[in-house]
Design a protein around this nucleic acid. Structure first.
Length: 528
RNA sequence: CGAGUUGUAGCGCAGCUUGGUAGCGCACUACUUUAGGGAAGUAGGGGCCGUGGGUUCAAAUCCCGCCAACUCGACCA
């Protein structure tokens, strides 16, 4: 690409590899996703940022309902005594809960906490709702805000208040609860892949890293562009810990009273931070089409010339009527400015439309994920009226097909994809763009997955562990299971255990840290 | 909550050493010319210099306190 004037944002974020955290905060402020709130650690989600959340939320909500859960809403104020009931839980959360002690000048008889999570208040209701095995399984979910006053904060990744989804379930048996825990973890894995184009590593957390009050915690871990790990979601098997603390009992078939087995699982607005750090580049954001508030931006060139605005509006209407999220940029800026802005905001496809295009009956389209390599002119009006030869009436745009093409060398080009889709009977511009958007999602996933696998390295012993972690990679290690080894890695290499993958095939025998018997396969990495 | 750094226009900064009219770039407003990769001209608007006290004829500038933010640790989705 031609050397261009380095001004403004492009210049500011040109050092992505040098200072990734700085790039991150710059990009979300400059693209107007969020602003800092007036209270430390809080975040104002502006329309563009909240729009991502809404799309993400709706997609995930669909999946949660499909797996049999119903939405509820519980109060944000929880009596302090509730929090005290489960010993580990209170210990884990006490330092960061916001307390309400007064109403006006009057001190409350019982202090309240602003929910840091809702296990306790939900369990209190569960104990009233659940009497019989016929009431089980109890499968609920809630979309809410929670408050955790953390010492250090970063937009999306760690804020004093954040939005999330928290699922809470009660089951009659241990097996059923464990199954639910894993099932919901897998819902997250599928969601991250298909909606966020983000590959994750799923597995079990160590005792040290598990949720306060859980019996077992499973997580999905995503790799950021700088090689750091981010816990992107968790699913907990609570065992009977809360059931015993809150007296959640049911009369079973055999006529005896039993404590319920519980799970809870959640993902948060942190996912937005994750996808920024997974897909973003020197030019700014790159949003996966399913969660892009604007999927297609139409940029008029020389908009003062006759017919340009009208053509843009006509195209917008046509695409919008097919459910595509499309916008025309009518601001009084130069085209170059608009192109850059479009890229910075991560809009998956931009369409340039000027007098020349209109003359020729075409539109110029550029993919955010491929930039100049993904630049093409496509016929503006219905292609279906013409015969472009080689008609294939059952065009497959299935992921598998492109996987084959991609993996069979570098013969795959965007042009080829375009030819496959456009030069067929029955295609029109909206259909083409719709398919192009899924193609982009898939390509972004493949790219991110490659990055993930390229940056995982085995580590047999302490030296290798040090080297891998200092290379900003995930160290796939064996571990004896002792907390001291995790603490040593934390202290010496500033890294933590991430999770233990479900595939526990040994990669070597000895613990990579202490050299004793290596019981578990586990990832160590620096983390956000 | 410990260590370091910084607070001047919406954002980024200069001015402080050596006290004396509040500055620059971007952004913003109006008009004109422009327009296919970050346009140009002309004219404007915008400040309790973080905050409280002190020194002084005079404080953004010197002194003391406080507050806030950032980075690194510890803690966490």
């Amino acid at each position: 690409m031609k050397e261009q004037k380095q001004v403004g944002f492009v210049q500011d974020i040109a050092n992505l590899n040098d200072d990734f955290a700085q790039w991150y905060t710059d990009v979300i402020l400059k693209t107007k996703l969020v602003d800092y709130g007036p209270v430390k650690g809080t975040m104002v989600m502006r329309p563009y940022g909240y729009g991502i959340w809404e799309l993400l939320r709706d997609e995930l909500d669909k999946r949660i309902k499909e797996t049999g859960h119903e939405n509820t809403y519980f109060p944000m104020f929880i009596p302090k005594s509730f929090l005290m009931k489960e010993a580990e839980h209170v210990e884990g959360f006490a330092p960061e809960v916001a307390l309400v002690t007064h109403v006006g000048n009057e001190e409350l008889g019982e202090h309240l906490v602003v929910r840091p999570t809702s296990e306790t208040i939900i369990c209190d209701m569960f104990s009233k709702w659940i009497k019989s095995y016929r009431d089980l399984p109890m499968l609920i979910n809630q979309w809410a805000n929670v408050v955790r006053m953390e010492k250090t904060t970063r937009p999306f990744l760690r804020t004093s208040e954040f939005l999330w989804q928290e699922g809470h379930t009660v089951h009659a048996t241990d097996e059923e609860a464990e199954f639910e825990t894993i099932k919901m973890l897998n819902v997250y894995v599928e969601f991250c892949k298909n909606i966020l184009a983000m590959p994750v590593l799923s597995g079990k957390k160590s005792e040290k890293e598990k949720f306060a009050g859980a019996r077992d915690t499973y997580s999905i871990e995503a790799m950021m562009k700088d090689g750091k790990s981010l816990q992107a979601g968790t699913s907990h098997n609570l065992g009977q810990n809360f059931a015993k603390a809150f007296n959640i009992k049911f009369l079973d078939k055999d006529g005896t009273h039993k404590f319920g087995y519980q799970t809870s699982w959640g993902v948060t607005t942190r996912l937005i931070g994750a996808l920024i750090m997974v897909h973003g580049d020197q030019r700014g954001l790159a949003l996966p089409p399913p969660v892009a508030p604007i999927q297609i931006q139409i940029i008029p060139i020389a908009s003062q010339k006759a017919g340009v605005k009208q053509a843009c509006e006509k195209l917008r209407k046509k695409l919008a009527s097919k459910g595509l999220r499309v916008k025309v940029d009518l601001t009084d800026e130069t085209p170059g400015f608009k192109f850059n802005e479009c890229e910075m905001k991560g809009i998956p496809i931009r369409i340039e439309l000027g007098p020349r295009d209109i003359e020729n009956g075409v539109a110029t389209i550029v993919r955010r994920d491929k930039l100049e390599d993904g630049k093409l002119q496509i016929p503006l009006h219905d292609i279906s009226k013409k015969d472009y030869g080689n008609a294939d009436n059952n065009p497959s745009h299935k992921i598998e097909k492109y996987l084959d093409i991609l993996q069979s060398n570098n013969v795959y080009t965007f042009k080829k994809f375009y030819d496959q889709l456009v030069y067929k009977k029955g295609y029109n511009i909206s259909k083409f763009l719709e398919e192009l958007l899924s193609e982009i999602t898939y390509d972004m996933y493949v790219k991110a997955e490659k990055n993930l696998h390229d940056n995982i390295a085995p580590a047999k012993n302490l030296e290798e562990l040090e080297k891998v972690i200092n290379d900003n990679k995930f160290a796939l290690s064996m571990w004896c299971g002792e907390r001291e080894c995790e603490e040593k890695v934390k202290k010496d290499f500033a890294a933590s255990s991430r999770n233990m993958p479900f595939d526990q095939t040994k990669i070597h025998d000895k613990c990579s840290v202490c050299g004793k018997d290596g019981k578990f396969k586990i990832y160590f990495a620096k983390a956000y």
